[in-house]
Design a protein around this nucleic acid. Structure first.
Length: 738
DNA sequence: CCTCAATCACTTTTT
DNA sequence: GTGATTGAGG
């Protein structure tokens, strides 16, 4: 049969996945077992056998990059053009559908998406407005609580069904309510609103639900272990009638529960749908045996899991390595030496350095620059969140959606001569006229301003009107040029002539140059977006779609360039990727597991999964390193080896320079040939912190209330448990470790 | 009234 | 080494 011929490149389990077309299908696919392949072949099979047409297929991936690759491979393998193919992330797909269905929703098709920074600014503004103590209510914390409510589909009116009633949570609810009012007034959604609105739309509007149920006859979800409740509900609404849903995931790779993902989705799939067929993929095609055995030995320490063992026929004598270095600089040097060594047999791009926190990348960068090794760094500040880029895009945002106050404000403040007080007056005028600020500005009546600000604001109004007008007929690319020209931002960054773009020479200031390059990149990506959009949608791109895609883009999604460079990224970003050579740095308690996670066992389990993900990215070599001393925010501390090290099966690990006992006697640092990179602060000299528990020979136990100075000479204010408050010199007390 | 320079605190992971 | 906030000068 022709259909079987299609699947000849798959192994039996994969073949079963691809050819099981009807009903709910749960694929438990370990790392490197070819799950992307399965998805592609299953899609190809569904279409080739006439089960469905490509426009009735929905494929949800975890990143935009994965979506792009999937499209590419569908085109290459099955000759499927990407027009009318619904492949994308939850946010991009359902963000688009919300535009279609805006008539049923409290916002328009031109809504803008607020990124995390916009969200935080808004929360901050509300906290100020409501006169709430900003010390006890940190914008970031409040933001993430609101986010959690939305991920669990809790609107403000359901807040008390799942939250304890306390004075504190009462304030949170107040902020949440106000926050939603603001978003609505500004015709804006945050990331979580996209999911929440979609879930409620499908739940509440039967006609809409039936329409999209019919549209998406076959649904596939990748990385199902990292979906949250809102995402579960959306998919459940779409799939519950036809039940043609295939989810692919690996509970051992669930690393996003902190963002609301619930492992329950994959663990309970068999009870959420009826007659589920479950297929396991355990044969790994990526790593050789020693790497898998090491990974298996680590992950077996987790208790809540489906349980599976990856295996392979691929054997090499090479074992993963564990190496201890003196400090983070030595670690970075060691890594750079490894990279140079690997470069003799494979490209730079086949090496990746993985770390737990973005901050760890700095020292690596420094050393790589020194050694002249080209690298590419992922994460950190997202391309579209960079100041110079947001500055340009805010003009486009207020053009597509004049209600977007955040952008209007940003643009106003960018205008020379317009500052905070003009802004306040505009806001005041808007309040007294009971209309949006946008309307006040666009009306052009500024008698409440002084003559200079009034003139400048009139200029701003004219610019806005010009942009509104131009947006009707200019392409996105040309529109960005218009912004650059009219706002003076182009001149500011040395981009004043379209034709000279490439001829411009390097600028003296490297920071300036990188901004210049970023703006060029923005222009490129705008025209690329237009091209791709035409191909995929058979229609002209619109500005709102462009801005949405820009906001939903992660650093990982930006196009690969042709240059051969080493990859630097967090372990989270490494998900779904693979490299010949993996280097994992900073295997220390406090970093991995991160100190914010060590108190709760299930958080430690997630950190363990993170390390598991990192190790299983490797095809050929794994090098794990740790430093004995590391510069932390408080100073240079002696580190503690990660608890995960002793969980590794030693049979599959080559250990170098690592002596666990060296850590037990901090006063006598291990003998070393390298001299320490910086002045080392001994345990006894550590900085004292307010709130620390201490012990004094005569006065007993107490807590530090105040610190003046550093180290053993610091003057401490201590409240002793049995009453007195005393001032004591640091060298007389010992810190009590938890 | 606006601008810029100095000082402050903070830094897990991200769609 | 980032960013936001604050204070003095223009």
């Amino acid at each position: 049969m022709v259909a079987d011929e299609l699947l000849k490149d798959l192994n039996p389990a994969q073949k079963q996945v691809a050819s099981t077309t009807e009903g709910p299908l749960l694929v438990l696919a370990g790392a490197g077992t070819g799950k992307t392949r399965c998805i592609i072949y299953r899609a190809g099979y569904l279409i080739a056998t006439g089960c469905t047409r490509k426009e009735n297929l929905l494929i949800v991936t975890f990143t935009n990059k994965a979506a792009r690759e999937l499209r590419q491979r569908l085109a290459d393998t099955f000759n499927l053009a990407s027009t009318n193919l619904w492949v994308g992330t939850f946010h991009s797909i359902f963000g688009k559908i919300l535009r279609f269905e805006a008539d049923h929703l409290p916002f328009t098709a031109n809504y803008v998406i607020y990124d995390e920074k916009d969200q935080k600014n808004l929360v901050k503004k509300i906290i100020k407005e409501l006169n709430i103590d900003a010390k006890r209510f940190k914008p970031q914390v409040v933001r993430s609580i609101i986010s959690r409510q939305k991920n669990n589909l809790l609107k403000p009116e359901q807040f008390w069904e799942f939250n304890e009633y306390t004075p504190w949570s009462k304030e949170i609810l107040k902020i949440y309510i106000r926050y939603q009012e603001y978003l609505q007034a500004q015709n804006a959604l945050d990331f979580d609103d996209i999911l929440m609105n979609m879930a409620y739309l499908l739940a509440d509007n039967e006609a809409v639900r039936l329409k999209w149920q019919k549209k998406f006859r076959y649904i596939m979800i990748d990385e199902y272990q990292d979906t949250n409740y809102a995402q579960f509900e959306i998919i459940h609404h779409l799939a519950k009638d036809h039940q043609n849903i295939c989810v692919v995931g690996d509970d051992d790779q669930a690393i996003y529960t902190w963002r609301g993902a619930t492992i329950k989705n994959i663990l309970n799939f068999e009870s959420d749908y009826q007659n589920v067929i479950k297929i396991r993929l355990e044969r790994n095609y990526r790593s050789h045996e020693n790497i898998l055995k090491l990974a298996n030995s680590l992950i077996s320490h987790n208790t809540s899991r489906h349980g599976k063992e990856l295996y392979t026929d691929f054997k090499l004598p090479e074992k993963p390595h564990l190496t201890a270095l003196d400090n983070e600089e030595g670690e970075a040097l060691f890594v750079s030496e490894l990279i140079t060594e690997f470069y003799t047999t494979s490209k730079y791009a086949e090496s990746a350095v993985l770390y737990r926190t973005n901050a760890q990348s700095r020292i690596l960068e420094k050393i790589l620059v020194q050694k002249n090794i080209p690298y590419r760094i992922f994460g950190g500040v997202n391309f579209y969140q960079r100041k110079e880029i947001k500055d340009i895009l805010c003009y486009l945002r207020m053009t597509v959606n004049p209600e977007d106050l955040e952008s209007v404000q940003r643009a106003l403040l960018l205008s020379p001569g317009i500052g905070k007080s003009t802004l306040d007056k505009l806001a005041l005028a808007a309040a007294s006229q009971q209309c949006p600020i946008a309307q006040v500005i666009l009306t052009g009546e500024f008698s409440f301003l002084g003559s200079r600000p009034a003139k400048l604001t009139t200029g701003f109004r004219q610019l806005w009107l010009d942009l509104l007008d131009a947006s009707q007929n200019l392409s996105i690319y040309d529109l960005i040029w218009l912004v650059l020209e009219k706002t003076g931002l182009g001149a500011l960054y040395g981009i004043d002539n379209k034709k000279d773009l490439k001829k411009k020479k390097a600028f003296a200031d490297p920071e300036f140059q990188s901004k210049y390059e970023n703006i060029c990149e923005l222009l490129n990506s705008a025209s690329e977006f237009s091209q791709e959009y035409k191909q995929e949608n058979d229609s002209e791109p619109d500005l709102a779609e462009y801005l949405a895609s820009a906001t939903l883009q992660t650093d990982l999604d930006t196009n690969d360039d042709a240059q051969d460079r080493v990859n630097l990224m967090t372990m989270h970003n490494a998900k779904g990727l693979e490299f010949d050579h993996i280097m994992i740095v900073g295997l220390e308690d406090g970093l991995l597991p991160h100190y914010r996670s060590i108190e709760e066992e299930d958080k430690v389990e997630e950190e363990r999964r993170l390390l598991y993900v990192a190790i299983t990215r490797a095809r050929q070599t794994v090098h794990i390193t740790l430093a004995r001393w590391r510069r932390m925010s408080t100073g240079i501390d002696m580190t503690k080896p990660s608890r995960f090290i002793k969980e590794f099966d030693p049979e599959y690990l080559d250990v170098e320079h690592y002596d666990p006992h060296a850590y037990l006697t901090p006063s006598r640092p291990a003998r070393t040939n390298h001299k320490p990179a910086a002045r080392v602060v001994l345990e006894s000299e550590k900085h004292f912190k307010i709130g620390q528990k201490i012990k004094h020979v005569n006065f007993g136990l107490g807590m530090i209330l105040g610190v003046d100075g550093q180290g053993r000479d610091a003057l401490l204010v201590i409240k002793f448990d049995d009453g007195p408050v005393k001032k004591i010199i640091g060298s007389y007390v010992d810190v009590i470790k938890k």
